[in-house]
């Protein structure tokens, strides 16, 4: 019944590697969350408890860290996460139009996931590609100089 059982050996190996790089176990907290999210797409309550157990800290202590950051997903996300930049340069260059288009096409607003689990749409602070605004990222891919007419093609590339 140990909580460690819910982490896979692969995850444990990766987390242990991160632990080996820091002076004490809990300093690997963020890295460990990243490892699990990488494998599972998000960090469930059970995963969080398992990671905390492995780091020898309380779920509270880990949750405190996990909920601080924007990109630790504590709720399930779709297979593909769209991060649409809503910061200033993209605002000036009209990200709202892009948002409107995606919303109409996928019928989801910021923070929502399509019923088929294909996409989650999230607002995101500056993607650091302001000279090519507006921009969005889907998973690890960056799309820049967006116009509404390119969106269908972009979205169709993700299943």
């Amino acid at each position: 019944m140990t909580i460690l059982e819910t982490l896979t050996t692969e995850e444990i190996t990766e987390i242990d590697h991160e632990i080996s790089l820091v002076p004490f176990r809990k300093a690997a907290a963020i890295e460990a969350l990243k490892v699990v999210q990488q494998h599972r797409g998000w960090v469930s309550d059970e995963s969080l408890r398992a990671i905390a157990g492995h780091l020898e800290i309380s779920p509270e202590e880990l949750e405190s860290v996990a909920t601080f950051y924007n990109l630790v997903f504590r709720r399930p996300v779709g297979r593909n996460v769209i991060l649409l930049c809503d910061s200033i340069s993209c605002y000036v260059m009209g990200y709202q139009k892009i948002y409107g288009y995606i919303r109409d096409r996928l019928h989801i607003s910021f923070g929502e996931t399509t019923p088929d689990g294909r996409f989650t749409l999230l607002p995101n602070a500056c993607l650091g590609t302001c000279d090519h605004a507006p921009a969005l990222m889907i998973n690890n891919e960056l799309f820049r100089d967006l116009t509404e007419d390119r969106l269908d093609e972009i979205l169709d590339g993700y299943h």
Partner: peptide
């Protein structure tokens, strides 16, 4: 103590237990 902490950020910070 282990089971009380601060969660979230900005004007949503919350002080309590995980559950």
């Amino acid at each position: 103590g282990k089971d009380l902490d601060v969660f979230a950020a900005h004007d949503h910070v919350y002080f309590g237990r995980e559950k």
